[in-house]
Simulated assay, not measured.
Amino acid sequence: MSTNNQPPNPKPDTNHIGKVFARFDSNSDGKISAAELSGVLEALGSAASPDEVDRMMQEIDTDRDGHISLDEFAAFFPSNKSELMEAFNLYDQDHDGKISATELHQILSRLGERCSELDCAGMIKSVDSDGDGFVNFDEFRKMMTAAKSN
């Protein structure tokens, strides 16, 4: 009988929300402005109008200081199935129900991240519980749910 109290599966990166926040916070000032939010949405291929960006800011910026803090961002992070599916679909560029290393690389490159496709394959592998080399929606949901609870 083992006395090791480690969980059987390693948890996904516990700082995932912080890393996503940092991608939005392009000037690294610890807060996301409307311009930064608009820039990331544009990089992801979502042409949000200024009015849509304003509505998103109003929804997320709960303290009404004109910026999104890490705490506000974490509270807004996708939690229900439809929000998670919408986030998943941003990465699933070919809409085949799975995220490949190539798709992840394309999105991260658009966001200004400098990582190779091989690096992206490693990221995929870290959450790929069925070992098929892709992240399906269930794996994505588990990763995002674990990240939100940390």
Rank of each mutant, 00 (worst) to 15 (best):
D54K: 11
G131Y: 04
D128I: 03
V20D: 00
H105S: 15
K11G: 07
R110N: 15
L118N: 03
K142W: 04
G18I: 01
E103M: 05
D119I: 05
L104Q: 08
D63P: 05
T3G: 08
V53Y: 00
D51Q: 13
N5P: 10
R64A: 13
S26V: 13
S38E: 05
E83A: 14
E117F: 07
S38I: 00
E139W: 10
A75Y: 02
V53M: 00
G133A: 15
N136F: 00
D92T: 08
A101D: 09
S49E: 06
K19H: 04
R55Y: 09
E72P: 12
D96N: 13
N9T: 12
G97R: 06
E139R: 02
K125P: 14
V20C: 01
C115K: 11
I99K: 06
A101P: 03
L111P: 11
S109V: 02
D94R: 06
K98N: 09
N136L: 02
R64K: 15
F140G: 01
P12F: 06
N9P: 07
K98W: 10
D130R: 12
L84S: 01
K31V: 02
H95Q: 12
Q6S: 15
H105D: 14
N9I: 14
M85R: 14
I17E: 00
L84R: 04
L108M: 11
N9W: 11
